[in-house]
Design a protein around this nucleic acid. Structure first.
Length: 473
RNA sequence: GCGCCCAUCGUCUAGCGGUCCAGGACGUCGCCCUUUCACGGCGAAAACACGGGUUCGAGUCCCGUUGGGCGCGCCA
């Protein structure tokens, strides 16, 4: 058995959205699983909509997700000469023919089909007409002379055997009137030339597989193994939209998700391995198989992604997490500012705070928020109530209050709350996330956090200026 | 409209004819741990879309209904 060759073939008309990322992931996994090759092909034949910015975004997204492709990324547009060459061959062999039908004629066909409740189908009017009848000055398109009888079978690894009646498949366009290849032709030629053995893609391509099979057969080429994976839907079951999560993967990076967590979440959307939920990348590679992919579409669920991310964060080594955070800083809200202030001393303090912080953060964004106290400007301005408390006796006053505050109900007292809030707001952190890192920073210990630690610090204004200074390993 | 695909807790799913009064995970709700917030532990509510078959026996096979999705371009 020869080695598997898979490919990811995005069109650069936008960012790498989450569905595309999952398709890439499955191709990558399959190649890794069976010791094969994972190729990248940019489908940029639509010159109007393709942009270099989109290409860059896609490469960057794949790179961030850790899905590294083998060899150079191939530009489909750059292979147009080859596509034309193949079409010439088909023309010569009679597998294709020139069609001079005008846009108006096609529109008429479409209109009529709709009126009669039929799907649009080219009627083959130039299929057997002599080229000498061609209207002068009209550039023809080249169409496939598809078999009209019988059926075309797509033996899909995920969907099973899917049978299409050939009468439902018309003579598709291979070459446009301007001489440029269509997607349908280019895909077939490129997959063949690249030696692609397994085509794994969204099941919105299932009917295309039938059409492409016809082209493969017309060319006498071996048809690749198909695997059409179900699409991801939004929380409401409708097609994934921007509002749902059809965001570029860079948006997930900005939301503070770890690549490994996103991979784990994405692969479990439609694929399963018994009851196992969490996988290291090696474990997924070892367990992955097309046969375990489900056939029904699944909905994207941020809550589960977030939970999963929390698991990965806690499972990360402190140094590893620290590095991930620093590397992601440029993309996180407020991150660039922090990155700017990250001198050696701040790095050490941040590193020291990670163990306490990571227990309660589900994303890198929350991790950064939790570390906010390290980066605020001190002394912290106090609001009136807070100032009032301090004015009444500061630390001593607070100490006197402590016994009364040993129960949760007490710390909702307005004055106390004001103090804590003032601190939390200033440090840009959530109330709960303030205590432990502060304690850790002050004492070098990371256990027994308490709101009272915060209060005692607040009671000593002179300490505020030194919080950062006293932190460290 | 035509073609194709799909259908187990709110969500992701296990289940490949009997061991399923349906298991796991997220979410939700209790309780425990905790001088905050998390983490963790224990527990609860929560599903086989509907109707016919086949079979001694169906979540598991077949048909239909309903519901959802995808496709139907000189886009990819």
């Amino acid at each position: 058995m020869s080695q598997a060759v898979t490919r990811f073939a995005p069109s650069p008309t936008g960012f790498l959205h989450i569905g595309g990322a999952r398709t890439a992931l499955f191709n990558w996994l399959y190649a890794r699983r069976f010791g094969g090759t994972f190729l990248l092909r940019i489908e940029d034949t639509d010159r109007e909509r393709s942009t270099q910015a989109a290409v860059d975004a896609i490469l960057d997204g794949l790179d961030w997700l850790g899905l590294h492709w083998d060899g150079e990324a191939i530009s489909q547009f750059g292979r147009a000469w080859r596509h034309r060459e193949v079409v010439d061959r088909m023309l010569a062999s009679g597998a294709a023919y020139r069609c001079y039908a005008s846009a108006e004629e096609l529109e008429e066909m479409r209109r009529k089909a709709r009126a009669e409740g039929r799907p649009m189908r080219y009627d083959g009017r130039w299929r057997n007409r002599d080229p000498s009848e061609a209207p002068p000055g009209v550039a023809p398109v080249i169409r496939l002379r598809a078999r009209q009888e019988g059926e075309t079978v797509v033996d899909d690894k995920v969907q099973g055997k899917v049978v299409f009646a050939n009468k439902d498949l018309d003579d598709l366009v291979l070459l446009r009137s301007d001489g440029n290849p269509t997607f349908m032709l280019a895909v077939v030629v490129d997959d063949h030339d690249m030696g692609v053995t397994h085509v794994i893609r969204g099941d919105d391509h299932l009917t295309n597989a039938a059409r492409q099979t016809q082209i493969f057969q017309a060319l006498g080429w071996e048809v690749p193994v198909w695997a059409h994976i179900p699409l991801i839907h939004g929380p409401d079951g409708a097609k994934l939209s921007k509002r749902h999560g059809a965001l570029g993967v860079e948006a997930y990076r900005a939301m503070g998700y770890l690549p490994a967590a996103l991979r784990n979440y994405l692969v479990r959307l439609g694929w399963s391995h018994g009851d196992k939920e969490f996988f290291t990348t090696d474990e997924i590679v070892a367990a992955f198989d097309l046969s375990a992919i489900g056939r029904s579409p699944s909905r994207f669920d941020f809550a589960k992604l977030e939970n999963m991310n929390g698991h990965f964060m806690r499972a990360s080594g402190d140094e590893e997490l620290f590095q991930a955070l620093v590397a992601t800083l440029p993309y996180l809200p407020g991150g660039p500012e922090v990155a700017q202030r990250l001198d050696e001393r701040k790095r050490a303090q941040l590193r020291a705070a990670i163990p306490g912080l990571k227990e309660r953060a589900k994303t890198l964004v929350e991790l950064l928020e939790g570390a906010g106290f390290l980066f605020v400007t001190r002394p912290l301005p106090m609001d009136e109530k807070a100032a009032d408390i301090l004015a009444k006796g500061g630390r001593a006053h607070l100490a006197a209050m402590l016994p009364r505050l040993s129960r949760i109900s007490d710390w909702s007292g307005p004055a106390l709350e004001a103090v804590v809030r003032a601190y939390a707001e200033e440090s840009g952190a959530k109330l709960g996330s303030v205590a432990q890192p502060l304690r850790a920073a002050l004492t070098g210990r990371s256990t027994s956090p308490g709101i009272f630690d915060v209060l005692s610090v607040l009671g000593r204004e002179e300490s505020l200026g030194r919080i950062g200074d006293q932190a460290g390993p």
